[in-house]
Structure formats: C-alpha cells, structure tokens
Design a protein around this nucleic acid. Structure first.
Length: 566
RNA sequence: CGGGGAGUAGCGUAGUCCGGCUUAACGCGCCUGCUUUGGGAGCAGGAGAUCGGAGGUUCGAAUCCUCUCUCCCCGACCA
C-alpha cells in the first residue's frame, strides 16, 4: 500500500459527534465514516481490520467442523410468523414491502432461516450433529444506536447454529463453540473473560457472553476476585449485604406526598436498607405484589424469569382497587394479594414500608408477623459489594463490551419451523439447536479500548490493517526498496511516501496503529541505518539498512508465533 | 419513547443572551509558488459557508418567534 495513492483520511481533531474512545479513533484514523445514525461506511483500513478478524473467526469455526454458508438477508413475513417473532421483534425489525405488496423483513438474526433449512434438508439422526455458520449483515432498527460502531443498525455478525439429536449433543456443541470462541478472541488479542448471561429474546437455555472490560461498554459484569464467578448483572446472583437492624415499634407515620425511597427514608430517619420497596404488578388481570429491600432494584430479567413475560406494572387504579392506596404508599402488611419477596429482605425482619393508606407509611413492621409472603426468591439486581454466591469474596462491577454470545436454544425454533429427524428407533424428534454470535465490527472497536494508550494505537499484528509501515522522511529511494522487499517476503507493508512535515507523518502513523514502523530518514541514512519501532511498547532499535527487512520480519513472525501459542 | 446537549466552509470553533461596523470571523486542512524536512514547518498569493430546513416578525435576522429535520449523550435492547 502506497500512502499517497490511497484513502486514509485522518483527522487532526476529534469530530464533534464522537464521545467514546473507539469511535474517536476509528473516525480520526480514517477507518470508518458515518452515513446516518447507527450506519457506517468502512473505508480501506477499517475494512482490512474487519477482514482479518473475520478470517480468524472463520478458521476457528472451521476447526470445530463449522460449515460456512451465506443466507439471504431478506426474508418473508410468513417465516417469522411461524416462530412468532414477526410480532416479538416489534420496531426492532426493519420491514419492507416488495412490488407485490408482500411483507419482507431484513433479518435481524437467522435462527428461523437456519431452522427452515434444517427442516428441509435434514432427515436422519445419522446426519447430526451439524454446525452451520455465516458472516452476514444483520439489520436491527435499534432504539438507540450508540458508541460509534459498538451498537449499530447494520452490522456484520458471524452467526452459527448447531443441530443435535439431544441435549447431550447440544452440550458438546456448546462446549466446542465456547472453546472456539476462546481461541479466536485470544488470537485477536482480546483480554476477555466469560460470564453467565441471559438468553433474552433468543431463547431460554444456558448462555455465556464473552466480555472485554471497557469504559464505553454497555454491560455491567459482576466478577468475584476470589474465585471464577463472573456474571452479567442481568442475571448475577449474590449475597446481599446485611442491613442494620431497625429497632422501632410498629407505628403509622404521616408522610404526605413522600413516595420515593430517598424521600421516605430521609423523612423517617431510617436507612434505605431498612425500607421495603413494594411494587405491584398485574399479570393477566390479577395483582402480584413483589418486595425488595429499599437499597436494591428489581432485575427485569429475574422478574421475567420468575413470573413470565406477561408482567405489567400496575396503574394507580389497580393499586387503589387491590391495595387501598396509591402507588408510592404500598406495603406488604395485611394484604391478601399474592406476595413474593426478594432474598435481600430475609436478612432482617423489622422494616419500614408503605401503610397501604395514602400519605402514610409504617415503621417497625415485621415481615414474618405482619406480611403474608408466599416465597422468598432472587429478584433483585446484584451489585458491587454483594457477596459472591460461590465463595467468601465480594463482587465487583466491571463495565464491559460483549464480544460474543453463545446459547443453548433447545427446540424452540426447530419445533416452530418443523425441523426434526428420525432417531435410531424411527421416532421423529425435534432437532436440538444452539446459537452463537459474534459482532465483527464491535470486536475491532473493543481492540481499540485495549490497545490505545497515550495517543498511540497499536493493533495486534494479526488484526492490524498492515503489519509494517515504512515512514519516509524526505527520502524515497531506500524506502521504496524496503517496500518492494517486504512485499516480496509476503509481509503487508504500508509505505508513507508523502512529502509532509515529519510530525504530521508520525502523528498519522500513531493514529492508524500499524504495529511495526521503519523510519527512514537522512539522519540515520548518514550512518547507513534506520529505526525499527514497535508501537505499544515503544521499543526502538537502530539497525543497518541491509538488516532492516530481516529484523522486522523476525519481530513480526515472533509476535505471530506468540499469539498462536495461546 | 422519556430526559439532556448540538447543528455556522472539508474538520474544529467564535459570533446567538442584547437583531445593524459582518462584505459572516478564527485555527487546521485544501490549491499555486519558493524555502524547509527525525514529532502536526516558514513566507507570499488563492479557492471555499445564502449560518440544518421551512415559514414568520422587522427598514434590517446566524441572532427574535413558530414549525420541522438531523446528529450526539443518559435510560428500556443486544453482537
């Protein structure tokens, strides 16, 4: 690559819209350009990094027996109605009509399409297991695209699907994916860890996410420093920190217009942790009272898991009808509504709570005596400071980017799409599926968070847009020879031949992040020498012109070998 | 969708409160010439914006009013 004839539109200043690190660098280094909210054009350098990431993923998928395919990005409504997701996806799905006014969707994911193929092509258990994957542009009309390339409305996903006869088979496909993911992320240079996760809209089974710590991450992961417990905050379990015992006699207190935990606890002179937060839900027309300690929040995910998806927060009328008070003054004592409490409340017995009478709260109620709690269960969002569920450690929170997600789907989609095989007994059985995704562009962004420091980006050589950069300072002859030699040795060289001030060339080079740099300038040439610099460590060696190509190749080969050993 | 911020030249900004010395300014970038060449160079010339859009108020609007579009950030989604 010869710089003066290429498109690497670097920016000297941070663009106005960019706030987080990877977004700024991708823009400034001329890797990507926005075209609309959540939509990007990938310029040559950005594309090259994505292609290298893609290739690593491909190699590791092939290694576990994955077969690459390429499915249609556009799909008919009927297929989505078969799985029930035409409605489930709601506004997140891009929809359009063809000239015959038929509804089509731009696929946000491909479980249905894959299951459909399986339903048509797979007959016998003898054909299982199978792993099919593709790199595909996914379209999701995200409510809020963000973080530059981290959350977009169009992105490339490697999605794979496993097809097994039974759950033992699924376990093994899942495990193979888990190992493949670890290998590919390691090869790319990610400092990742694996967390327990929730399946969300995709399914219900066991699921793991591959996380990288980053300020711009969208997820919170809870990690135990003492053991290997790691979980997404959505599903993390933990031991609640205990609350100070409330020593107050049962008494009703006038609390006009005080509704929030802060207002009420402040007014009553109790800690938020000595307060019961009582939330009324409606489920199929019936009320459901759920309690959590005042210093914790409910986890939507856990509520969904415990009570199903049909849970609606109650309106004021519901509250008055079933509890005799407005929202904000509800409490568990003396109510007939079915009541569940979070485990955090089990640490004590005496609390303050709403009085079920407008503008009143009660202090000193006893949950065991005054309330009729059907069951204590895990319903809250665990947070830093809570105890690890597996050991004596204390959990801490990390903000993380989700690189990949693997989960066990089960038979949800195979049943919906009619994907079944005959087993050895001749009985028809739905195929047991797993689904496994990786966002390609996101992986690129996450690497910036991990490898940018002090104004210098240093891509791991295996994913870098080029392996070595020749930086010419007012001299092109020796440089050109390097360029030719490096290329003929099979190295990916970028030659900055532009006639510019040295500072500007160094600045561009730092931004773009090609990890090895040969500086060819008159100062060194006078002694017959050039500098080789490794970005990231900043280590620089001064070598004879004739040795330079050999030395760089060795350094690059060594870094590549190191990566493979992992 | 709720809450917050922002749209002025390719990029980054000033000007907006308090309409008029603004022919809309500045830095960077860009073009021409000469000089310069190990961390964003110097001199001299030059091109480039009807101030997001539409309406309105006014003798006069980047600036005031109304509507509208777009982008970014924080929350409900997920790779």
């Amino acid at each position: 690559m010869i710089w003066s004839k290429s498109l690497v539109p670097t920016l000297r200043e941070d663009p106005r819209q960019a706030e987080n690190l990877s977004h700024k660098i991708l823009l400034r280094a001329g890797f990507v350009r926005p075209i609309a909210s959540g939509l990007y054009n990938y310029l040559p350098f950005g594309l090259r990094v994505c292609q290298k990431i893609t290739q690593i993923i491909r190699e590791e998928m092939n290694r576990i027996g994955g077969q690459e395919m390429h499915l249609s990005a556009l799909s008919p409504r009927s297929m989505w109605e078969q799985s029930g997701r035409w409605n489930a996806f709601g506004d997140d799905m891009f929809r359009l009509k063809d000239r015959k006014q038929q509804d089509l969707a731009l696929c946000p994911t491909h479980e249905e399409v894959m299951a459909l193929i399986a339903s048509k092509e797979l007959r016998s258990y003898k054909e299982l297991p199978q792993i099919w994957y593709q790199f595909q542009t996914k379209f999701r009309d995200e409510p809020r695209p963000r973080g530059g390339v981290l959350r977009t409305r169009q992105f490339t996903m490697k999605d794979s699907y496993s097809f097994d006869l039974d759950y033992e088979g699924l376990d093994s496909s899942f495990k193979r994916h888990s190992e493949a993911y670890s290998r590919m992320f390691t090869r790319m240079g990610h400092k990742f860890f694996v967390v327990q996760a929730s399946g969300g809209l995709m399914g219900a089974g066991e699921s793991h996410e591959f996380m990288v710590e980053a300020e711009s991450g969208e997820d919170i992961s809870l990690v135990c420093p003492e053991c290997d417990y790691r979980a997404n905050a959505e599903v993390a379990e933990g031991k609640p920190v205990s609350a100070p015992i409330l020593e107050m006699k049962k008494e009703k207190v006038h609390t006009p217009n005080l509704k929030t935990v802060e207002e009420v606890s402040g007014f009553l002179g109790v800690k938020p942790s000595q307060l019961v937060k009582s939330i009324l839900f409606m489920r199929e027309g019936k009320p459901l009272l759920v309690l959590v300690r005042g210093d914790y929040d409910f986890s939507d995910e856990k509520l969904k898991r415990a009570f199903g998806t049909g849970l609606e927060p109650a309106e004021n009328e519901d509250a008055e009808k079933h509890m005799g008070a407005s929202l904000g003054f509800l409490g568990p004592q003396g109510v007939e509504v079915e009541t569940y409490a979070d485990l955090s409340l089990e640490t004590c017995d005496i609390y303050a709570a709403g009085a079920n009478e407008d503008d009143y709260h009660v202090v000193g109620i006893s949950l065991s005596r005054d309330a009729n709690i059907k069951e204590y269960m895990d319903l809250r969002t665990v947070r830093a400071g809570d105890g690890c569920p597996n050991c004596k450690g204390t959990l801490s929170e990390k903000r993380t980017i989700e690189l990949g997600h693997i989960f066990k789907l089960g038979t949800k989609y195979s049943e919906a799409m009619g994907a079944s095989v005959l087993d050895s007994e001749g009985a028809e059985r739905p195929i047991v599926m797993g689904s496994y995704g990786i966002g390609v562009e996101r992986s690129m962004a996450a690497l910036i968070d991990q490898y940018y420091a002090d104004g210098v980006m240093a891509w791991p050589v295996v994913v870098a847009p080029y392996e070595v950069q020749i930086l010419s300072l007012g001299e092109n002859e020796v440089s050109e020879k390097f360029f030719v030699d490096l290329n003929s040795k099979g190295l990916e060289a970028a030659w900055d031949d532009r006639d510019m001030a040295p500072g500007a060339k160094f600045a561009d080079a730092d931004l773009v992040g090609i990890p090895y740099r040969i500086v060819v300038g008159p100062r060194g040439l006078k002694e017959g020498k050039v500098d080789i610099r490794k970005l990231g460590t900043g280590e620089t060696i001064n070598v004879a012109v004739d040795d330079a190509v050999r030395r760089v190749s060795e350094m690059i080969a060594e870094e590549k070998a190191d990566g493979c050993r992992n």
